[in-house]
Write a protein that binds this DNA or RNA. Structure first.
Lengths: 215, 215
DNA sequence: AGTTTGAGTGAACGACTGTGCACTCAAACA
DNA sequence: TGTTTGAGTGCACAGTCGTTCACTCAAACT
């Protein structure tokens, strides 16, 4: 065996992509402890295994890194609803499955949800704006999903907006809480998930008895 | 008229308190644009009109400043529920009044609510812990208030927790959104307040139809 | 085989960070 | 009236910060 066999043959593109991922991962890692505004390019690049200046080969500025993380995080979020949507659409099982899927995804993409939860209100104006925009899109998707449900046939856009925003607000708040470092213990996390499930149920009861807004 | 008449006679304590307030106000001001982790002691003290080292006459560390702001902010929050509680306890008018009071308080103590909203998930571990603790206390107070309502007589502790946490989560999320710099326009803010009102109503409908959890 | 490309390097920049220490000087106290 | 106290000052310190620039050197193309 020559050395060639053990060393991974890497194209220029592959290597660049690998470094880029290393930067993104290092950022997500560092953002678990500090806000984006307190992010240090030097610590970041050191953790990624490159020299500070090499960062600029991948991103024009730190803000661009942040926006990329927003995009990436919402790809994760969309994967979540796609998974929920691919199952049984019966309202009875929908909540439980949604919460279960969320719990699993929170575990697998902890850093993404933590990032959104942290920077949603904590970040710079640009970051908050980007997250706000993505969440609006997300809510709109949820509205069209809800509009398809026969139970909500008589609802207007305003009613659907109330319910959808309720779900989104609740989910983001719960997600941020659950992935928080203070909820490391499985028992604490389980209790938070259980509470989220009950909250969602109570909202569904409210939706069932809701008298559509006039207008 | 001598100069004595125009210069406020200030005791040593008064002067210290005034400087302390200047520091706290400068911090709240600066925290509208950056997270607490990115707070600069030098900019802070410059805005407060003192030299950097003078800060340490008032706080042992920046973290202590943060904890003081948490305390202060929750004093504001308690003032809010006290005002709500002092009015008509009839459930029909309670929501509207609560939301109205919140809207007014958000305007008057914008910085406090912005601080809580930002650092709840965004801050350092110490800050998050302190806010988490205060919010827990706040929720517990809400639970005892709810427990007194005749409509919820049959509810257990778990049910009350679900409802109370729903209200608290919703209020904090909405407050953070409403005081956000991106909601500067009155029309946007009004729409957010209206949506909060409807969300609260939907939750109340859910509570009315809620079947208490077995246990 | 020769040339071009571009990710990563390393030194240097000016500015900014939190904090320690010796100081002033007016208010508070004896 | 003399002494003590302590909020605020000014300098200095050792770091860290983001960003620039000219560079290397291997992969990719001609």
């Amino acid at each position: 065996m020559t050395d060639k066999a053990t060393v991974a043959p890497e194209s220029r593109q592959e290597r660049k992509e690998r470094t880029r991922r290393a930067i993104l991962d290092a950022a997500l890692d560092q953002l678990a402890e500090t806000g984006f505004g307190a992010l240090s390019l030097r610590q970041l690049t050191k953790a990624a295994g490159i020299v500070p200046t090499a960062f600029y080969r991948h991103f024009a500025t730190l803000d661009e890194l942040g926006l990329t993380l927003v995009d990436e995080s919402f790809v994760t979020l969309r994967g979540l609803i796609r998974e929920v949507r691919s199952g049984d659409p019966a309202p009875e099982t929908l909540i439980d499955r949604s919460v279960d899927v969320l719990a699993v995804q929170l575990e697998e993409h902890k850093a993404h949800f933590r990032f959104i939860g942290r920077e949603r209100h904590g970040g710079s104006a640009a970051l908050r704006g980007a997250i706000r925009h993505e969440l609006d899109l997300f809510e709109r998707e949820l509205v069209t999903d809800l509009a398809r449900m026969p139970e909500l046939e008589r609802w207007g856009a305003a009613d659907l907006h109330v319910l959808a925003s309720l779900f989104v607000d609740l989910m983001v708040a719960a997600a941020a809480e659950i992935v928080s470092p203070s909820a490391e213990q499985a028992a604490v996390r389980r209790e938070l998930v259980d509470n989220l499930r009950n909250q969602a149920r109570m909202i569904v009861v409210g939706a069932a008895g809701w008298e559509p807004l006039g207008g």
